[in-house]
């Protein structure tokens, strides 16, 4: 499972993606992923918002994750 990182999320983690290996315990849902991430990198808890996209659509915390999904962390957007 790979999780893409953008903007400040990339700076917090220090790379542009997080890779979970076969042996890692995979987050089962968007909510699990957010909890896991915030536990490992407390800086995520300080952001104005933290969204997750699954297969390039915004996903609620209840959405389940599978290893084939394209998952991305969406920190507060600031286009325009």
């Amino acid at each position: 499972m790979e999780v893409l990182l953008f903007g400040i999320a990339k700076d917090i983690v220090g790379k542009s993606e997080i890779r979970f290996s076969e042996t890692d315990e995979l987050p089962g849902s968007v909510g699990d992923l957010k909890r896991l991430l915030t536990a490992s990198y407390p800086e995520f808890g300080k952001l104005s918002s933290l969204a997750v996209a699954v297969n390039s659509e915004y996903a609620t915390d209840a959405v389940f994750l599978t290893k084939d999904d394209e998952i991305a962390i969406i920190p507060p957007v600031s286009g325009g």
């Binding site: 953008f6 903007g7 400040i8 996209a53 991305a72 920190p75 957007v77 600031s78 286009g79 325009g80």
Partner: peptide, 8 residues
């Protein structure tokens, strides 16, 4: 500005 995943 509210929704599109672009970061500045």
């Amino acid at each position: 500005k509210e929704k599109v995943p672009i970061w500045k």
